[in-house]
Amino acid sequence: MGVRGVGDSLAEAFAQVALAMTAIITDPSMVRHTERVDIHCACPDRELLLVDWLNALVYEMACRNMLFSRFQIQIEDGSLSAAAWGEPVERKRHRPIVEVKGATYTALRVNQQKDGSWIAQCVVDV
């Protein structure tokens, strides 16, 4: 399934694509911001950094049994630092649809558009 984020900055596009990934699993508006998890990853290639970022989130979701719906991201010189807010999965309330297995390199694209906005996208395997 494809996910795409658009934002005024690279960091915002990365935050939006993460939100799109949550929307594959559940309605993001149902996910409260009760816990914060910090995530760091680094890669000089922006596109590979996007895959790393999404896969870091997949890992945190799987191991903590959590869903995330708010992201604050900083990206500098290929290094990403993020705070992700969310809460543990409540199956009755969140009604999660499907697990994300991992982010892929398919349809992978990170670039700045003519109007200055950023686009970040790839296909995630579910």
């Binding site: 590979l48 895959v51 790393d52 896969n55 997949v58 799987a62 991992g102 892929t104 390199y105 395997d125």
Partner: peptide, 16 residues
């Protein structure tokens, strides 16, 4: 399950 997904993710990157 998660083990296979994580191995796929990691080795895909190493191989790229």
């Amino acid at each position: 399950r998660g083990l296979g997904h994580q191995i796929g993710t990691e080795f895909l990157k190493y191989m790229v």
